[in-house]
Design a protein around this nucleic acid. Structure first.
Lengths: 146, 146
DNA sequence: AGACAATGGATAGCCTGCGATCCACGAACC
DNA sequence: GGTTCGTGGATCGCAGGCTATCCATTGTCT
């Protein structure tokens, strides 16, 4: 009883995540952000002034990871944090000018990565693949909700 | 111009890799190995006594990562290393009894993870999805060769 | 008001990934 | 035979995941 790695969705997903991250990183390096920061940036471009908790509710990463990612983003000058007006435990996360200015470049980098991935795919194939992936996630109880 | 994370293969692949790794880990923890060690174990069950270099040629990870993974596996008592008979730079990697004994448990854990992933999929859908994922990898120059 | 539970975040320690370096040995070439 | 180049591995420093804890504050309940 053998186990063929190349017939394992878990293994291929792992390879794919690594490869896509490297591809994105190649574009992101010059722009001044890291792949792991993109999801956070996407949320913030959609409206900043959120607490860490609110960001957490929108992304599928753990609180500890978020805390570290935000710390790196602050170090890199992408965000700043201010005290919450009424809850002294919380902070609000805002984009800096640099963070805001990154938007177009980063969006382009993300789109280019997607396009590279889907070279040679027909539209319906692309849609189907995405749908399958969402089904796998749902099977693991990870609905990429909304 | 928005960017919908849930319509991004890169993002979904990332989620999928994380979720699958967690699912596998839940099963692997009791068995005594870590998810990242599975690919190496699979190669070694297929025939041990390889050098680090030979393992590298068969897996898609970098040398530094392999060195660390092997160190952890040795620490955990899964492998042992002996000097290469004719090349004093190299070492040969062998499975310990514990490493060999893990095989059935680990294979089962891997299969169960795959089955969980593909719940509700028809056979041809499963095949198609795997094929699409391999195509994406090929587009990034990462043919999971052989 | 006081006690206790719940919540926002930070931190520590681990795994898995990467690139860059370094060291030791082997191979090739004068 | 010596110099130079290449190769097998280890190590460092960092990103980004995770769980488990801890701290401070807020909320709740009597």
């Amino acid at each position: 009883m053998d186990f063929d790695r190349t017939a394992s969705a878990a293994y291929l997903a792992n390879l794919l995540a690594k490869a896509a991250s490297r591809a994105l990183q190649a574009l992101a390096d010059g722009a001044g952000f890291a792949p792991g920061q993109l999801p956070v940036l996407l949320e913030l471009w959609n409206g900043d002034g959120l607490t860490q908790r609110e960001l957490l509710d929108r992304l599928d990463i753990e609180q500890a990871t978020m805390a570290n990612t935000l710390a790196r983003m602050q170090r890199d000058g992408l965000i700043s944090r201010r005290r919450h007006p009424s809850d002294r435990r919380a902070q609000l996360v805002f984009l800096t000018q640099r963070g805001k200015a990154l938007r177009d470049t980063a969006m382009t980098a993300a789109s280019q990565t997607e396009d590279a991935l889907f070279q040679g795919f027909r539209r319906f194939e692309r849609e189907l693949l995405l749908e399958y992936m969402r089904m796998l996630l749902a099977n693991l109880g990870r609905d990429p909700r909304v």
